[in-house]
Design a protein around this nucleic acid. Sequence first.
RNA 1: GGCCCCAUCGUCUAAUCGGUUAGGACACCGCCCUUUCACGGCGGCAAUCGGGAUUCGAGUUCCCGUGGGGUCACCA
Length: 521
Amino acid sequence: MIRTRFAPSPTGYLHIGGVRSALFNWLLAKQSGGQFILRIDDTDAGRNVSEALQPILDGFRWLGMDWDEGPDIDGPHAPYYQSQRSNRYQEAAERLLASGHAYRDYATPEELKAERDAAEKKGERFFYERQWMAETDEQAAAFEAEGRPRTLRLKMPREDECVIQDLVRGEVRFEWAQEQDTVIQRPDGSCLYHLASVIDDHDFEITHVVRAEEHLPNTPRQIFILESLGYQRPQYAHLPYVAEPGGSAKLSKRKLAKYENNKDFAQLLARGRSIADRCNIPMEADTFNPVIIDFYREIGFEPQSILNYLLLLGWSLDGETEKFTVDEMVKLFTLDRVNKSPASFDPRKLISFQGDVFTQLPLETRIQRVRPFAERAGLLGTSQAEEMLAKVVDGAEDRLKIAGDILDFDYFFLEEISFNEKAFVKRICKPDNARELLRRLRDHLAPSEAFDAEYLENQIQHFCETSNIELKDIIHAIRVAATGQAGGFGMFDTLAILGKTKVLSRLDIALERAATICADA
RNA sequence: GGCCCCAUCGUCUAAUCGGUUAGGACACCGCCCUUUCACGGCGGCAAUCGGGAUUCGAGUUCCCGUGGGGUCACCA
């Protein structure tokens, strides 16, 4: 039975690299009928744990990554919050002390800092030499009489080496003598991460520890703890981290400003901002940031595309197959095809995946996805607008890649549109007969009873013949006048969806506008 | 700096147990389709970090460089 875990700290946001780690854990557990556990690493957290945890749980729920045990649902090993498990850690700390694998240490923070600074001055690395270690109760009493604070440190071996069989990296060796005597318990009795993590993995019966590569150097001391306690080693798999766009450093949410220099990243962020701006979505850098999962939910990405993209960041099936449903991911994922080197985050490929996924959704689903955005942007409200929405989504076809893209087609809904200035000049001002043709076309269409695409095509073709012009001589001017835009979907469909009233009034508005702004007016 | 990890097109990656014209995808560039914008179709550009060793033969094995990165807390 495989049991995996993801252990977020309640930081208030879910990092995209974290999602990938969690995904691999989740897939590994699901494919064998095992369990995926969510454990909350809040040993160092402030008061607002539940508030800071919410976005993380929301993120997982949105992605459809359900956990079998953890917050909100509990399970046989509850509690799943480290802050509620301190008695377990203290118990272990005492055992470690009793067995001689840990010792009482009475160094003050000031003394340690002085040692550290001195080492740094000499260009050496700091290595604690147990100057304030108390080996006997007498020594401990003497230190305590001086009023020194007591911490518990691991008494690391000074010879031999630690050999790890890592499922993605193979055999990795560390010399024990290089390992520091890590502090596992603070003077106030609270225990630190390494201890807590090992105890929890044991208590929760975790069989596979799949986590980011940055934890690889921590592994020897965790192995020391668990073996000292007589626990069995889990299987380890250290994943390469997700690197920044166009670079090889670890992707970090704090470097948003730097990433904005990356064209692709900047474009994605700009896209998001324009949607958020129209929909009154808050844009704090803590959550509205392509490094954070909330960003994608807020602007209308599909969980499926994010999962699929992240799966391929460091894993491949055969180098050919790229599109996977969640069921396929679960069935086909294997740790032995995880790559060893960091994979940099490529916003363009993510967008491409998203476009494919969204386009293939049934019309009804697309309408449903898009509606909240249209609503928040104030485009809906009337029953005509509802009908319009369905027609627009249908007509837009694959031009809609992200749900928030519906705002690109706001001109169908708005009473007053804004004109693309360049297009207006090029299509309406510049051709010398454009205004005349538009005026005549307006009058030609005014008496029309019908206003469907087929009828419009016939009418406009006929208009062209009688005017001795070709369709292409007028169609661009019509589009700009009716939509304000240079591009869009089929012209006759566009006019039909807009409806006669809007089309006629916009032709009037465009003509008035041309009269005032065109250079020769 | 110590320890550890990594190294194929711009990016993500493929290449049984050494033998391929080093394959696919995203991006980019052409052409076609077309009333525009997309889509789609066709084509193109583009990579094994360097040096040794082993071998008939090395992207693949070994060694040495070089480069990139991670980590070195009374954080997680």
